[in-house]
């Protein structure tokens, strides 16, 4: 187990970019950066709050995420920051756990990421993020 992993961001699935704009306005947040992640078929828009807590708004474009919470969206995952994602994966895999992708993938911003299979968390989506 990797100790003391700080929270990197919380991921929220929303059906459209318009919904993201509405939510950011509601929360008084500004867009920080965005990117499309083909592995998840999703546009990921990162927003910063005043004190720097990151929220990732995920807008699916096909794929399973589009059906998340029966299409309504909602809080989808928490992301924890690690120094070395490959090493983190090896540590969990040594305990018999699996990840959604066989190797770290490039995220929507300057980081690598991967998700622990929800099988090992009984449905809670946990992402690990390695800043670049």
């Amino acid at each position: 187990m990797i100790p003391n992993m700080p929270l990197h961001h919380v991921g929220i699935v929303l059906p459209s970019e318009e919904d993201v704009a509405t939510m950011m306005a509601l929360l008084g947040m500004q867009e920080d950066y965005r990117g499309f992640v083909p592995q998840w078929s999703a546009l990921c828009i990162f927003a910063k709050a005043d004190k720097g807590s990151l929220i990732e708004f995920v807008v699916p474009n096909g794929g399973p995420l589009e059906r998340f919470n029966k299409g309504a969206g909602g809080v989808h995952h928490i992301a924890l920051e690690v120094a070395d994602l490959a090493e983190t994966m090896r540590s969990y895999e040594a305990q018999g756990m699996k990840f959604l992708e066989p190797a770290p993938i490039k995220g929507a911003g300057p980081f690598l990421c991967n998700f622990l299979s929800p099988m090992f968390t009984r449905g809670t989506m946990i992402e690990f993020v390695q800043p670049l």
Binding site: S117, R122, G123
Partner: peptide, 28 residues
């Protein structure tokens, strides 16, 4: 079933554990 993906699979099994009041949970 298109809606039956890896995440909904787990949610389905947790719901089944509750529905059938299973004393031992499904193992990995």
């Amino acid at each position: 079933i298109e809606e039956w993906d890896s995440l909904s699979h787990i949610r389905l099994l947790v719901a089944i554990e509750r529905k059938f009041k299973l004393r031992s949970r499904f193992t990995n």
